[in-house]
Amino acid sequence: MIRLQQLNLGDLNVGPLKRPYVALMMDVIGRGLEAASQVDETIQREVRKLPDGFMFDMRALPDGPCFVMQKDGDSTLSYIGSTAPRKPDVSLKFKHLNHAFLVLSFQEGTARAFANDRLLVDGEIAYAMKLVRCLNRMESLILPKVVAVRALKRYPQLSLKEKLADGGRIYTRLVKNLVWG
């Protein structure tokens, strides 16, 4: 009986901590992307090619968690939060919370999630490709290499400055953003 209840609640395959973990990681990634876009030129180059006011989100179907970002200024992204004020231009949707968990715990890369039919793009594919490159870049900058190599098809050649100085600046901004909101 308890097992049946657990099954219905999805506890057996999702676990009680996965939703808060995914929500937390989406918050961290949103803020991390914001910080990285203020520091890293590679990300700025991609963002510059997005239309003004471009908005995107990444969410787990059917009802979240979610993070929403918007292009502000010429080359930076700002973190909007967990609800979108309008329909985003591009939406990256995980079919299930568990799939979001796999990617956000860096067990499965974004490309693998697409190839495994777990992650859907709603909106212009060309923009989604730019976003995927931004996400990959941010991961390579802030994650320890041993973690990043699992999530990325290829770990980029980073100069020591990029990994330590820029990665460090992203961290500082990220922590500030997390603490002071």
């Binding site: 974004t110 490309a111 190839a115 594919i125 060309a126 989604a128 490709m129 995927v132």
Partner: peptide, 9 residues
Amino acid sequence: ALDDGSIIF
């Protein structure tokens, strides 16, 4: 080509 969806696969 970098913005083509197929490149991710």
